[in-house]
Amino acid sequence: MTMRLFETTRRAVIAAAVGAAIWGFAAPAGAQTAERPFITVASTTSTEQSGLFKHLLPQFTGKTGIEVRVVAVGTGQALKIGERGDADLVFVHARSAEEDFVAKGFGVGRSDVMYNDFVLVGPKSDPAGVKGSRDAVKALQAIARKKAPFVSRGDDSGTHQAELDLWQRAALHPKADGNWYRETGSGMGPALNTAAAMDAYILADRGTWLSFKNRGDLTLLVEGDDRLFNQYGIILVNPARHAHVKEKEARTFINWVISPEGQAAIAAYRIEGEQLFFPNARRKGA
């Protein structure tokens, strides 16, 4: 009797293990041989986390049957993924790095897609008194004078590069200026979480800021400066370098994104009535 129970248990365990294994093996294999074609896009956390892709991609897939798989990382890493050929196209926001990417032959045919802007966010108490200013550079100088806490992405992302550019225009080297300037080495969201916890100033892209939920005491302080302009571009990974790049499908996506239809879809994306991204493709086509 006990023996039978033992045997039953033993068989159950073995059956469960084998079943799990078959289920497990079959599933990843199934995912690879997906019925419909797909492309892999290396993009930035700002586009993914703002919810733009969730709004945009179903429309594209519904029309063309091409699935779009987004790997959302910092702009620096996204370009690296493209360089190694691990994506079919990159969709990022760091103009000079993008042009460098094309110049080195890693990608072909960069197109402008849209822009949004960066905003300077900080605590409601605003110790540096920058609220309402339209001059981002002066605002940074005021923050540095007060040595008010400032959180930097510090991750070589597009936003980080834009922030460094502003400090340079302000002729300041905050990194060498004491511990009020903190580099978190993380994505936009985690950096905002840190800033909320520290009541610190931070430069954020508007899309992530609008969709960010854990704001704590943070509020929008500075916007509207031309120098806060944030251009997004899309680049096909060079098929001559990486033969496996799905050039046809990738070009279909690029052409749709910069087409009137795609551009209208981008413009239509809003959070709480506020438009996040402003299409500005010059409709050249990839």
């Binding site: 892999t40 986390q49 892709f53 798989r69 790997v71 969201g189 960010f212």
Partner: peptide, 22 residues
């Protein structure tokens, strides 16, 4: 790569929601 619907798991989803501040 935490791709929605392809490689998103419990832990990567948690990391994502954390970074979205949710």
């Amino acid at each position: 790569g935490n791709i929605d619907g392809v490689t998103r798991t419990m832990t990567t989803a948690i990391a994502l929601e954390t970074s979205k501040g949710d």
